[in-house]
Design a protein around this nucleic acid. Structure first.
Lengths: 160, 160
DNA sequence: CTTCCTGCAAAGGCTTTGCAAAGCT
DNA sequence: AGCTTTGCAAAGCCTTTGCAGGAAG
């Protein structure tokens, strides 16, 4: 079992690789290039940890200028499909959360429902068991959601 | 690894036990008894498989008469807290899904993203690993979300 | 008669959609 | 020119909240 290091923002090189991957996807799909789309991608990739669409919009406001909500929502599927972002933190109320997926190891989440703390972990044994289950039932796996919810050490101490 | 039998509706005895448990909770909490609340509980408990709040309201319309959306939303937390229902199927768009929890074994879900088929499974090895992870990071577990998403055998065949 | 429960309507929060202007190619 | 992308506003969905009348204890 392994704790996965919470990522810091992507460095310059990584950012360039990600944007290149995005441009390649845009070409492949016959879309137009767009600086707004790249701004959104940059904001998302540089963000550390988990964030919402709204976080992104606020970030953009201070760095690249105003970008409309609808635009972010429209760009988002591309970023997810191309593996730059992934949906996460399903066990939360305020809308969908995302995190960078590009040049990040796969991991799942352990969440404290009291203080919101998130520990990222990876356990190959579980991945293996998931594959076994899918195989047994004839499914080809495309993804999974795995979030453990509980109370962290600090909150347990405070409760007592 | 074990496939968990998709439950049929709760039988008469089970329904009575569940309602008794609910009445006991109502007493304990100093609430009033209410036939509408029991109707909602009955509709939820008799439902097979997974359902939404809207499904419940439609069921009620044909059996017990019109019940307002807000009322179902207000009763729902009690039913979940008392273990009659549980939230499930996070990987879906149209609102929260629920299923009966009362006199049901714990299980997780394998979902076909193309046809929506759901297989319920239980694997003690995974549960054990989840506990180990929580222990390692000092969390007391209160629950988890574990959904495997993929394409089922039938949909794979159709694609080809 | 006090407190809870319910229906109804309205508001809320996140996300999507329609439309017209602006931008790529 | 022809299609994509964007901003803006409006609509959509699911869910929650405020209020007043009705029910329970």
């Amino acid at each position: 079992m392994r704790r996965v290091r919470t990522p810091t923002g992507l460095d310059e090189g990584g950012l360039e690789r990600a944007l290149e991957l995005l441009r390649e996807a845009v070409r492949r799909r016959g879309l137009r290039s767009s600086s707004v789309r790249e701004s959104i991608a940059r904001a998302a990739l540089q963000r550390e940890g988990h964030f919402t669409v709204d976080d992104l919009i606020r970030d953009l406001r201070t760095t690249e200028g105003e970008v409309h909500t609808a635009t972010v929502y429209r760009v988002r599927p591309l970023l997810v499909e191309e593996g730059l972002l992934q949906t996460t933190l399903v066990s939360s109320s305020d809308g969908a959360h995302y995190e960078r997926a590009f040049e990040r190891e796969h991991h799942d989440h352990l969440i404290c429902s009291q203080c919101g703390k998130v520990v990222e972990f990876f356990l190959e044994d579980i991945e293996e068991l998931q594959r076994a289950i899918a195989k047994k039932f004839g499914f080809r796996l495309t993804g999974h959601v795995h979030e453990l919810v509980g109370t962290c050490r600090d909150c347990l101490r405070t409760d007592a």
